[in-house]
């Protein structure tokens, strides 16, 4: 089982993502953008990690989405292979038309706008640990294959543009109906409150991650690779005191592994 961690100029989370891939028992390597895109077909799954590919020129993810490797990934996605885009990787998948999966660019991850009591209290980049609720049923999506509906995760975000917006009518309704909304921001008890700080970036309906209709392509703003070990958790989380335990983000990587096994 071999995973490609795709690297563009400006990517900056590829090394820790590869650590997480390997730690759950998958093989993996970093795949540089200027390698022959055809080589991608020999991999069983793909991670597009976070960072600032091509310096976020034009829009975050816009340039990388036009690279030959993304065309190759579109073909691999059609074969049902898992592709997980994290943070900037999510932005690239949206710009490439792989999410929400209609082949067109139908949504954007716009600048964070933090709204509280009807007022904008802050804009732009934000880094913190937040809570996520898994919204899809188990086995719906490659990257959350092993997760129960309603399960909660503490996980960090770090982005300036994670505010999911769309002007396509009924797109959000369709995503909800088709169970393509995989993660939402919530409070520590699992309540979705569409206000900062619980909705940390102003995203429509607090959406933090979505998958394509087939479920093999997942995009998410939070960073599971940075919540892979319990020692990475914030100080006030009691699990921090048990440093040898797995962290909450590990289940994304375990899920991808299981998804590949089941679909092999």
């Amino acid at each position: 089982m071999k995973i490609a961690v795709v690297q563009f100029p400006g990517t900056n989370c590829e090394y820790e993502t590869l650590v997480a891939v390997k730690a759950v028992g998958m093989d993996g390597e970093i795949f540089r953008w200027n390698r022959s895109a055809g080589e991608l077909s020999s991999f069983d799954g793909y991670f597009i990690p976070g960072g600032f590919s091509y310096q976020d020129r034009v829009r975050a993810g816009a340039i990388a989405s036009k690279e030959p490797v993304m065309q190759a990934l579109t073909e691999e996605a059609a074969k049902g292979k898992p592709i997980i885009g994290i943070c900037n990787g999510f932005q690239i998948l949206v710009e490439a038309g792989l999410l929400p999966g209609t082949g067109k660019v139908e949504m954007a991850l716009a600048q964070n706008v933090m709204v509280s009591n009807g007022k904008i209290v802050r804009r732009g980049y934000y880094c913190d640990w937040i809570n996520l609720r898994h919204e899809a049923p188990p086995r719906r999506c490659s990257g959350s294959f092993l997760m129960e509906r309603g399960s909660l995760f503490k996980i960090p975000i770090a982005h300036g543009e994670g505010n999911l917006v769309t002007s396509t009518p009924k797109l959000i309704e369709m995503l909800n109906d088709e169970e393509q909304v995989v993660f939402r921001y919530c409070d520590k008890n699992g309540r979705v409150i569409n206000e900062f700080p619980v909705n940390v970036n102003g995203s429509t309906e607090s959406i933090a991650g979505i998958c394509n209709p087939e479920g093999n392509v997942l995009g998410m703003m939070p960073h599971p690779e940075r919540a892979f070990f319990a020692w990475q958790l914030p100080a006030f989380d009691p699990r921090k005191q048990r440093p040898d335990e797995p962290g909450p983000g590990r289940s994304v990587f375990e899920s991808v592994k299981r998804y590949i096994e089941v679909n092999a």
Binding site: N12, E16, V19, C127, D128, A158, R226, Q232
Partner: peptide
């Protein structure tokens, strides 16, 4: 410090 990425590299224990 919420503007600063304190988590990238995945090494951070105390932020």
């Amino acid at each position: 410090y919420r503007y600063y990425d304190t988590e990238v590299m995945g090494n951070t224990v105390i932020r």
